[in-house]
Design a protein around this nucleic acid. Sequence first.
DNA 1: ATAGATGCAAAGAGTTTGCAACTAC
DNA 2: GTAGTTGCAAACTCTTTGCATCTAT
Lengths: 150, 150
Amino acid sequence: MENQLEEIYKKLHEQDYKITPQRQVILKAFLNNAKEHLSAEEVYNIVKGQYPDIGLATVYRTLDLLVDLDILQRINFGDGRARYEFSSRAEHHHHHLICLACGKVLEFDHDLLESLENFITKKTDFQITDHQLKFFGYCRECREKGQEKP
Amino acid sequence: MENQLEEIYKKLHEQDYKITPQRQVILKAFLNNAKEHLSAEEVYNIVKGQYPDIGLATVYRTLDLLVDLDILQRINFGDGRARYEFSSRAEHHHHHLICLACGKVLEFDHDLLESLENFITKKTDFQITDHQLKFFGYCRECREKGQEKP
DNA sequence: ATAGATGCAAAGAGTTTGCAACTAC
DNA sequence: GTAGTTGCAAACTCTTTGCATCTAT
């Protein structure tokens, strides 16, 4: 986990990007909240604690950079804002279970979509580099606490 | 195809929604462009031809209504705007192949995700009602016309 | 007749950008 | 020293909302 940060710094260095304190606190926010899917605003709020002068624009620019460098992956859960998680986590493929009642996002590990990818590429000549599989439904907690949403 | 419209009108009637000319032209826009994944603005531009006084807000309100009634399904392809397709098409499940170079969205028919849904529900106690599977990559045309994006 | 629907303009939310000041290298 | 980065505010894009007017039933 700690040398994940070193590797990222190295990657930034190699591409002549500077390792600014702002970028450091943003990366640490993701490391410290590895189970979350943080939005730009959530990152901003976390990071303001350690670096109060940071601007929201810097957060957006850093997130864009990290996505370009394939360090973060941008995901959209349909709640009107982009969310981010480490790409390295996406490599051991997991899928997202999005609760339609409370909006919570659970994860489910599952690596068996490669065969489908190969099949599709064979059939359609579309070269697949990545996939995202989302399931929508209702989590146990929401089903238990009343049937507001069946 | 034509009685699909009748069914939708019936559904609107049953729920005491009025069948206004604006709603009619919007629905027809989707019927006439069944292969597209139209955005609100695209619908607006199509529909202005037949009904020049229509407002963009009406398009948004109608799309919301049709999503609520499960006639349309809202999809997000990561291009910063919501897109829509008939839910009935989603029922015979197909997945979206999104080209990272040109943004084109191809489709691939495939119905075999139910077993995975059942497996996940069993494992996690998350009750799944729907899923969305997107593949990202490069279409043949973009691969052929130069390797701008490898 | 009347509940619901519309068009317009203004407001909101999320994100991007121009620019002068700053800083990691 | 300098190219790259930052914070701020303004701009932009997509979407939603308030309200007076209109209309399908």
